[in-house]
């Protein structure tokens, strides 16, 4: 689980927190239910974070060097 979160960076951490929040809100009755919600949120937010990172990273690379 931590490997997945580490791989997805800050987006993964946000996904983990949101996943925990949703699991507590819906009051899942099994551990697997909690787990799947966290995994889905880590994947979605992690991917979104990667996408943002890639977009901004790309934009920065295209900037002309000031010096």
């Amino acid at each position: 689980m931590w490997d997945i979160i580490k791989e997805f960076g800050i987006g993964g951490v946000i996904g983990l927190l949101i996943g925990l929040g949703i699991a507590s809100w819906v009051d899942t009755t099994t551990n697997a239910g909690t787990g799947i919600l966290i995994v889905v949120c880590v994947l979605v937010f992690g991917a979104f974070g990667q996408l943002l990172g890639w977009a901004f990273g790309k934009k920065n690379k295209n900037k002309p060097d000031d010096e």
């Binding site: 899942t28 697997a32 239910g33 787990g35 799947i36 919600l37 995994v39």
Partner: peptide, 24 residues
């Protein structure tokens, strides 16, 4: 909405986690 999410997570949680290699 809460019920739907809970039912879905509890029903498919175990299978989906084992599919991606996470043990309960």
């Amino acid at each position: 909405l809460k019920d739907e999410i809970r039912q879905w997570a509890d029903k498919f949680g175990s299978k989906a986690l084992s599919l991606i290699g996470i043990k309960e």
